[in-house]
Simulated assay, not measured.
Amino acid sequence: MSDTSAYQRATATPYEPGFGDYVQLLKPRVMSLVVFTALVGLLVAPVSLHPVVAFTAILFIALGAGASGALNMWWDADIDAVMKRTAKRPIPAGKVQAGEALAVGLGLSGISVVMLGLATNLLAAGLLAFTIFFYAVVYSMWLKRSTPQNIVIGGAAGAFPPMIGWVCATGSVSVEAFLMFALIFMWTPPHFWALALFMKEDYHAAGVPMLTVTHGRKATRAHILAYTILLVPVALGAAATQIGGPLTLAVAVVLNAGFVLGAVRLWRRDEVMAQADNYAAEKAFFRFSLLYLFLHFAAFLAEAALKSAGLGGW
């Protein structure tokens, strides 16, 4: 019995999708990260938006992220059915039909872009439209299945939200917006390659050319270390701008020291060690990478709050 036929039978099974199934189609965990980073980009900008406008902007950025998730699930339904990590997603599980996912993705894309443009400005709407296109077409349809650099280039899609939030408030792109973008862009490869270290078989079974599949785990560990080191000046540079300050710099120093030490630890490990403890260090590094990004952006937000009270900033 082939995985393809199992997927076809699952999607042909009669099922009345509920609200929760459609919510899962939008990748809510990814959406939460998008909302948080976009909100930080908006709030640390030097121009303040009316609370209603700010809420509206974040709402439609979130819908745009959800649209990207739905389009990604529509296109990737065949490989999602093969991978254990994704087999329970709405389409391979037979809860939402592929055509419905496509309609939801396209509909939310149009609504989010148009409404963001009306609520804020055309540059923000254009960036959101490009982000959806980049994730759904450039990453999902092209890069993901064609090159081991998929997550490196494709990481741009997840890096745009803070820049979009900044542009919603200011109407322009600045060094600060670019560095917030660069922070996520450079963080994405070590974050996802750490996941790929202990999920290699999933990607191999699905035919996705992740670096662990095409070059092996040893090369992937070296790439994680290289990108983690390259991430350090980006994080410190962001802390040195107008959105940073002493608190942000201190957080950046501590987090990046921990991130580099974790990457060195992974680089020194071999497969015998990793298999012996069921990839414990790799899983710990992956979890820490999530905390790393959250705390960096939380520090930007805290610095802005201190600055408004006359206590923070440079």
Rank of each mutant, 00 (worst) to 15 (best):
L71M: 10
F294N: 06
V82I: 14
I164T: 13
W74Q: 12
G158E: 08
R269A: 15
L306V: 07
F60T: 01
Y292V: 03
M273F: 12
I91R: 01
A276E: 12
A136L: 09
T56H: 08
K84A: 15
A194N: 08
F133I: 14
M273V: 13
G216Q: 09
F178T: 11
A206L: 05
L26W: 05
A235R: 00
P92I: 02
G313R: 01
A157L: 09
A177S: 13
V44K: 03
G158W: 03
K144R: 14
K27M: 14
K27S: 11
Q275H: 12
L230Q: 09
T13Q: 14
L25V: 06
A238W: 06
V272Q: 15
A205C: 01
L255K: 02
D277K: 11
P233V: 05
V213I: 14
Q24E: 15
G64W: 00
I79E: 03
V53F: 04
Q24I: 01
A77P: 00
A226S: 13
A305T: 11
Y292K: 05
H215G: 03
T248G: 09
G258L: 13
P162T: 03
L122E: 14
F36T: 06
L39M: 12
D80K: 00
G20Y: 09
I79G: 04
A98E: 09
I132R: 00
A305P: 05
G110K: 05
L123G: 03
I229D: 10
R269W: 02
L290G: 15
A252I: 07
G66I: 00
A125S: 13
L25P: 02
M273T: 14
E176Y: 04
L127P: 01
G20I: 05
L122C: 07
G171I: 05
A257W: 15
F294H: 08
T13V: 08
A54L: 08
V34M: 11
Q242P: 13
T11Y: 02
A159G: 09
Q97L: 13
V213R: 03
R85W: 07
S146V: 12
H50N: 15
L301V: 04
G110W: 08
A281C: 09
W74G: 05
W75V: 01
P148A: 12
V40K: 02
S5N: 10
Q8F: 06
S2R: 11
A182K: 06
A206R: 02
G258K: 08
L236T: 09
M1I: 13
G244V: 02
V96D: 07
D78V: 12
N256S: 15
A65K: 01
W193M: 06
L49P: 01
L255I: 11
Q97I: 12
S32G: 15
L225F: 14
L49C: 03
R145P: 07
T131Y: 01
T37W: 02
L179Y: 08
T13M: 11
V254N: 15
A156P: 07
I224Q: 01
A38I: 02
L71R: 00
S32H: 13
A169I: 04
T56M: 14
V52Y: 06
A284E: 13
D76G: 11
D80S: 11
M210G: 10
R268W: 05
F60C: 06
I79R: 00
G262M: 05
M273L: 14
F134L: 09
D202M: 00
M180N: 10
L183R: 00
